[in-house]
């Protein structure tokens, strides 16, 4: 555990909590892609199956349970409790174009051809692209609420901090996981355009809106 890893985890946690609170307080999931949230729930479910097979640490177990719990709570709020506010017409990204290739890739390129390892690999690949339905939705409507942009910033920052964590671990522990690193780079790159808009617009007090 190093400072980048810890702050990365906390940034991830902050993102998840921000989204849950935004939906809960406003009693609305307008502007939020339910498809991205289903993908994240799928990511956590397939990645944290090792909860049943091995114990790493209390921190590890607690965070995994919180992430999974919050992911399903978010999906529940969007598709059940506040379903009337869900903007399904703008959430039109075809997720099968992500899930099918990612499934194929995780069977082809993995560390070990075992069910748990393939599912872990699937979750890593899927997480790297799971935000695309949300970004697609914003590009379609041309705007995002400020609180939604804070959520996206924390979510992008988390993976960027993990990149520093992997650099740290490579230098000081000789550890590296090529699958996680490549997917993490892809994931972080997908946020770059958004990071630029966040810094140039949102941090200067303007609403994030894209030119028509």
């Amino acid at each position: 555990m190093n400072i980048f890893r810890l702050t990365g985890d906390l940034s991830h946690l902050a993102a998840i909590i921000i989204l849950l609170l935004k939906i809960w307080k406003s009693r609305s999931c307008a502007g939020i892609s339910g498809k991205s949230q289903i993908l994240f729930a799928l990511v956590f479910t397939t990645r944290y199956l090792d909860l049943f097979t091995s114990f790493i640490s209390l921190y590890n177990t607690c965070m995994k349970l919180i992430y999974i719990g919050c992911a399903y709570a978010t999906v529940y709020l969007i598709y059940a409790k506040f379903r009337a506010t869900y903007d399904g017409n703008h959430d039109s990204f075809r997720v099968e174009f992500l899930v099918v290739p990612v499934g194929g890739l995780s069977v082809l390129i993995n560390h070990d051809f075992s069910p748990l390892e393939i599912l872990w690999t699937f979750s890593i690949y899927l997480e790297s692209v799971a935000i695309l339905p949300q970004l697609f939705m914003i590009s379609k409507t041309g705007e995002a609420e400020t609180i939604t942009t804070h959520y996206l910033f924390c979510l992008g920052l988390y993976r960027a901090l993990y990149l520093f964590n992997w650099i740290w671990r490579f230098y000081f522990e000789g550890f590296f996981d090529m699958i996680a690193i490549v997917a993490g780079v892809v994931q972080t790159v997908l946020y770059c355009d958004f990071f630029y808009l966040y810094v140039t617009k949102v941090l200067k007090g303007k609403k994030l809106s894209l030119p028509a």
Binding site: R5, D9, H12, R47, D50, L51, T53, S54, F55, I56, S57, N60, M63, K64, Y67, H111, D112, S114, L116, E117, W120, Y162, N165, A180
Partner: peptide, 10 residues
């Protein structure tokens, strides 16, 4: 350590 062991990172 086996790769199929539990993962430390989240």
């Amino acid at each position: 350590k086996e790769v199929t062991d539990g993962k430390d990172e989240l």
